[in-house]
Amino acid sequence: MSKTFTQTKEELVGKAKKQMDTTFGQGDWTVRQKLALTCRILFEGGHDSGLAGQITARATEPGTYYTQQLGLGFDEITASNLLVVNSDLEVLEGKGMANPANRFHSWVYEARPDVNCIIHTHPTHIVALSMLEVPLQVSHMDMCPLFDDCAFLKDWPGVPVGNEEGELISKALGSKRALLLSHHGQLVAGDSIEQACVLAELFERAARLQLLASAAGDIKPIPEKLGKEAHDWILRPTRSAITFAYFARRVLKKHGDALA
């Protein structure tokens, strides 16, 4: 008889976590390369909406962060054409200008020292859900990294280029990792680039599943205890790194120039 058949779930979970952490590394990409890969991953995942949306990550100096040039689509971002800006959106490295809507990123970074990457996009199914003015419902195991971790801003603040919008959005996000903005799109605030990228992809899929399920009937909730258990099991740094690496390998088959 197998020696693990008598072990408790808690013991097996702990063993699996330890094995994952010792088996898998965090990847060898630079911050710039991970951001460029994130742009291409999200492009392939349906997050592109013309020039709308911003992807940022903290840079080396306090109060500064990387972002893409205004005028370039997600499918055009490379490691070398990213900008470094300060909280006033003044360009410190690179050419061109940042999207003025990055202002609310500055507010989120100021309010959340734990956040190292922010993704804001307008993907189809999230936008469709936002038009209904209803919160995200997480009712499937795969989507549980967003379980009780997605806030909702019902009142559309308008074009997010002012400090008023930055204050409103950062307060609506609170301590959570995701935010659904009515009549607008989504925001993800991650501990790492890898985590933020994975959550953004899950967010769009969760919105799609919600629209499909609600068209067929009433969505049934999952037990809170089990939802939180799945949230903590899936949303681990090593798991995010493994998933991001898979997304990167897949996207590099079509977007080999991203790392340049």
Rank of each mutant, 00 (worst) to 15 (best):
L82K: 04
L209A: 11
A79K: 00
W156V: 06
G158W: 05
L173S: 06
V85N: 03
K176H: 11
R112N: 14
Q195C: 11
V138P: 05
R205G: 07
L179N: 01
L202S: 04
I77D: 00
P123T: 05
R103I: 14
E201K: 12
H184F: 06
R177F: 01
C144H: 09
K171D: 15
F152H: 14
L209D: 11
E201W: 12
M97Q: 14
L168Y: 08
C197V: 03
T78L: 01
S175K: 12
F104M: 07
G162E: 13
M97C: 07
C150H: 00
A101E: 15
G158Y: 07
L179S: 03
G158R: 05
E165C: 10
R112S: 07
E194Y: 03
L168P: 04
N163R: 13
V115K: 00
P100M: 00
E110R: 14
V198S: 00
D88A: 14
R177I: 02
I126E: 12
A128I: 08
V84Y: 04
R112L: 06
N116L: 02
S192L: 12
S130P: 10
S139R: 13
T78C: 00
L132M: 14
S80Q: 12
M143V: 02
H183N: 14
G190V: 04
W107S: 15
C150R: 04
D149T: 00
C150E: 02
V84H: 07
N163C: 13
A98L: 03
V91S: 06
A207R: 05
D149E: 15
V188E: 03
E204F: 09
S182P: 09
N163M: 10
F152E: 10
I119T: 05
C150Q: 04
R112D: 09
P123K: 09
E164L: 11
A79C: 01
E201G: 08
F152I: 13
N163E: 15
M97R: 13
V115Y: 02
H184Y: 07
V134E: 15
P113M: 11
G94W: 03
L202T: 09
A189G: 01
A207N: 05
A128E: 15
R112Q: 11
F147Y: 15
N81S: 05
N102V: 00
S182C: 12
S182A: 15
N163V: 12
A79V: 01
E194H: 01
V115I: 08
L129N: 07
G158I: 09
I77P: 01
H105R: 12
D114T: 07
K176R: 12
L168D: 06
R112M: 06
W156L: 08
E110S: 14
S130L: 11
G185R: 09
D155V: 14
I169N: 02
S182N: 12
N86P: 05
S87I: 02
A178L: 02
V138S: 01
F147P: 04
N116G: 08
L92D: 01
